[in-house]
Design a protein around this nucleic acid. Sequence first.
DNA 1: CGCACAACTTAGAACGTGCCAG
DNA 2: CTGGCACGTTCTAAGTTGTGCG
Length: 601
Amino acid sequence: MLAFQLLRLQAVRVLLGDSSCRPASRGSLGPRSTQKGSGAGWEEEKHKDGVKWRQLEHRGPYFAPPYEPLPDGVHFFYDGKPMKLSMAAEEVATFYGKMLDHEYTTKEVFQNNFFSDWRKEMTVEERKVIKHLDKCDFTEIHRYFVDKATAQKALPREEKQKLKEEAEKLQQEFGYCILDGHREKIGNFKTEPPGLFRGRGDHPKMGMLKRRVMPEDVIINCSRDSKIPEPPGGHQWKEVRSDNTVTWLAAWTENIQNSIKYIMLNPSSKLKGEKDWQKYEIARRLKGVVNEIRSLYRADWKSQDMKKRQRAVALYFIDKLALRAGNEKEEGEAADTVGCCSLRVEHVQLHLEADGHQHVVELDFLGKDSIRYYNRVPVEKPVYKNLQLFMKNKDPGDDLFDRLTTTSLNRHLQDLMDGLTAKVFRTYNASVTLQEQLQALTHAEDSVAAKILSYNRANRAVAILCNHQRTTPKTFEKSMQNLQTKIKAKKEQVAEAKVELKRAKSDHKTQGGNKSRSSLEKKRRLLEKLQEQLARLSTQATDKEENKQVALGTSKLNYLDPRISIAWCKRFGVPVEKIYNKTQREKFAWALDMAGEDFEF
DNA sequence: CGCACAACTTAGAACGTGCCAG
DNA sequence: CTGGCACGTTCTAAGTTGTGCG
């Protein structure tokens, strides 16, 4: 069984088991929510129809530094002979040389795409000579950049300080804008530097040359009366416009997928914060109608209309398993990944009986970022029957829901509730799960450390639901071993302390007196301290093991209504800083402002 | 309706840094 | 005082949803 699948089962156990240990009172007799601090200026909607700002002023993007040619002593070799390359060809060669010890460069697709794009940058003469990648030797280039990085790391303290200050200056100059009179931080104020495209998973375009962004590619968006940003010397903007129905400050078209890249605000900004708040308010509205929607799709499982049936089963998956909508993707443009609506027959297996359950569906597919989703889950009988029907007479490569698109699904959802789309279910289920899990796992009498462990467990249940995975850190095994060694040592200390305590007890019994009494007390305290330390270490180990391949950050940042966490902190006396770091507190400023301890999602 | 394009959110990996144990 | 590691930050790819057009 896959490790992640195991975790999913454990998570279910937490969901089912532990809640019975706690009184299950939901205590929702009082007012449903407390929202204070309305004077802080958080408003769900301020502008009329799509207007996002009245004033927008900024310095434009900061451009990647120009290419610095290799020093004379560093050579590229072709067929064993050194070869001086033209600047354009050399630059692209360095992109490849830098990546030499990365797995990417061993892949055929990567090599082919790179070589074909590289040749386009060569002069006619170069192209005549350089015909085979396997005759190219980039090792000297590679070594040059490795050495350079090492030298950079070894820089004296004051040099590093200087660099830091320069970066700070840049941040101050280009990293902020003025939006409606407020100075707001920009999320990404630098253009993306040129390089070789690194897609995720089996990407057909990996290795292609991502070209340098020039001012001539960039559209600037700012208010008409603002100071128009200066393009770098000798250059011009592609266009300067003033569109206050969008939130971006600058944009350019990228050459790999031909999509638009944007310069936008940081999550700490008021604009993003209000949008975030709005997102959770929509999810909370879903809470009010979700039971109705669930009865509706259950009814639709029996509809005469096959389209409706498919929609109803897909919606069940989206709701129960927190799957993404799953848009169609153009073949050859991106890795072959799917979501709910784009599931194919080959991704589903039906088991009339498995793991001691009836009607088990086994899902196995690559989702966003080519992360594998694997799950075996018992479903209600009509779902099972419908899936059998949808799969009948189809090839493995055929669409499971051949009459369903994300557009038609979302249109249906929109009819059920204003603002409802497929992804709202993910937000809703994630937040509701956190709230339930916190309720089930938190014990008021626990230490702050234990409460934080409970919080992480609740967070983890959500991450598992949403399939947020990470590759096990390279150093995991080693650092786990270190921790185990520490635990073993601590256990020995505890054992020893117990022996000593026993001895002290008997000493005190035979001798009596103050001296032996104080010695006894000392030993007792020592044992207590050691036992505490041991307990802390073992919770640490548990936490670490359970977190091995689970990424908590994504759900924390994008799916969990921060007001749930803030209310929990207030209720149980946990400092918010233990849950949210500085950046996160800035992003969730809106929630810190308004969530009282009795907030309920 | 179906498509292409635009705008915005969500995502994991790579990178940087500062702290703590040895 | 130093090296490893945990954590925070940066980067940009990969999704979803909305829009406008024929």
